[in-house]
Write a protein that binds this DNA or RNA. Structure first.
Lengths: 209, 209
DNA sequence: TTGGCTATGTATCTTTTGATACCGTCATCA
DNA sequence: TGATGACGGTATCAAAAGATACATAGCCAA
């Protein structure tokens, strides 16, 4: 839990202007969320913007029964979809759900209009975030177009957060979901990896070797 | 050919500030390009930014022999990849090639730092462009994940610019390229559409019914 | 301990797409 | 006019992925 101002400010090292930091402290508020909490809903107007301090928010779009993972908002990042929606006073077209215990700095979206003309670091931050999200999407895009699913699964496993025992806690179903395919396909591929001694399968988690 | 200032300014209606328009005229320059001209190259630093007045620039990334189409920069739009690259003084990671006779307003990239604090409409424009590009990419993404190629071809045909005779001037090879597949697949699908009386095939163009 | 739910294993079949090869047609230009 | 190259049609084969069905195993609560 982030209590004191000093700790909090270390998370905002990319905003060097002292007055800006003061504003963030003055108008911002640190909220804690637990896994499963919903931060943004499709169809809602966005009045507050988040900067994640610790943890992660999963942002995705939903159409009929299909889901598209856009990105995870992680420490020091903001949600570009929320930003754009708030900026133009549009409803959100995405969902944002907390996937692990998460602390978020929340501030009123209206402030960004002033910040744009006052704080260059804010503009830099925004463009950097947009660029990063775009690159992430290009990467997924590339994966889907050019790589076979086994490669994408392997890639996912390599990037996934490990615990101390080299365990990735995820079910086949969830993994299928993340990669936009079906459980059977994932199970088949993982079994193959196990045969090749790359991983070891357990109920509820995967051990990487 | 855009000659007079008045005509030129009608293209910039989303920049209402008179001083901003003056700056654009003062520091900007209208250049004409023909099909095939290269505007940006992968690996080059970006010193000037474009706003397209008429025509289109195809922006794509190239990795080994594979190509990813990012977007077309059309009238009133700018190239977000160039913008981000220029902003952070990075080399471009994309190519930009003119696909039809095109007129572009070019201005020195350094100006954008000042514009951010001086002209709200500029910031609005930038965020709008980033958002649009992102949405476009999500759309392609969706298509690739969820739709079969015939659907994507049909979608492409419906959106494609028609001439007065309902003709789309594109070869099967080009179409395959746009959709990230091969010529044979496209020919096969188009032939099927023709059987279903949806289109009529000719050498070099397709008639929509 | 038993029933029920979730997670996983696996076989079978089908569809979609890609790869390759070969042929004919059309336009252009030397 | 004849060579050349882009364009398009089609057949055949193979690979990748999805759909479906069913079996088994672990987990947990009544």
């Amino acid at each position: 839990m982030i209590e004191d101002l000093k700790t909090f400010q270390t998370y905002l090292k990319f905003f060097p202007e002292p007055e800006f930091r003061e504003e963030l402290v003055k108008y911002g508020q640190v909220n804690s969320f637990k896994k499963g909490d919903i931060i943004v809903r499709d169809g809602q107007y966005v009045k507050f913007l988040p900067i994640v301090l610790t943890g992660a928010i999963r942002v995705y779009q939903q159409k009929e029964d299909r889901e598209i993972l856009l990105y995870y908002v992680r420490a020091e990042e903001t949600c570009t979809m929320s930003l754009a929606a708030a900026y133009f006073n549009n409803k959100s077209s995405s969902h944002g759900v907390v996937t692990e215990p998460t602390e978020v700095l929340i501030f009123p979206a209206d402030l960004i209009y002033q910040w744009q003309s006052k704080y260059p670091s804010w503009n830099k931050y925004v463009i950097h975030m947009f660029r990063r999200r775009y690159d992430e999407l290009i990467n997924s895009f590339e994966g889907i177009v050019f790589d076979h699913i086994p490669d994408r699964v392997w890639d996912y496993l390599k990037r996934a957060p490990l615990n101390t025992e080299n365990h990735i806690h995820i079910s086949h179903q969830q993994l299928a979901h993340e990669l936009g395919t079906t459980r059977v396909v994932i199970s088949r591929i993982l079994k193959q990896f196990e045969k090749e001694k790359k991983i070891k399968l357990f109920r509820g988690y995967i051990e990487l070797k």
